[in-house]
Amino acid sequence: MSKFAKKKSGELPAVSTASLPDIVFMLLFFFMTVTVMKDSSLKVKNELPVASEIKKLEKKERVITIFVGKPNREFEKTYGTEPKIQLNDKFASPSEVGDYILMERAKKSQDLQNVLTTSLKIDKDANMGLISDIKLELRKVNALKVNYTTGKGDAFSNIK
């Protein structure tokens, strides 16, 4: 048997898939680096309004997030359909916001405690009454820097 025997012609050579792992790994590394793990699951409807004059919220470790919105369908029976506040993983009343902020603030390192921003992720159908209550609670614990988190877009599209 000669070493350089000619292949039988007529048969299509198979496409080499040897580089497939490389491609997949490349994608994998991309997603691994851009990934931010979700730290809490949303239990409320959270459709943010849009605004055009927005500023980016840099540095995630300096942000405390509060969600507000209608409870999802599976929680409707227990919590009703009125917009609710979600702190971490559970529903809360406005009076608990202050304690939550203080608790979260205590978790952060000393030098960050004075530069924290509260990100308010509020559903666009919520009423201002609840938000005023939250704002009052935030003022009570001296968490004055807030960010009304919104999407980017034409602000007039909020009003139909």
């Binding site: 851009v34 931010v36 927005i54 980016k56 990100s119 004055l144 807030v146 960010n147 009304y148 988190t149």
Partner: peptide, 13 residues
């Protein structure tokens, strides 16, 4: 993955 950088209106209370 959630690719997002949050943005919004900054306000001081």
């Amino acid at each position: 993955t959630t690719i997002e950088t949050d943005a919004g209106l900054d306000r001081m209370l």
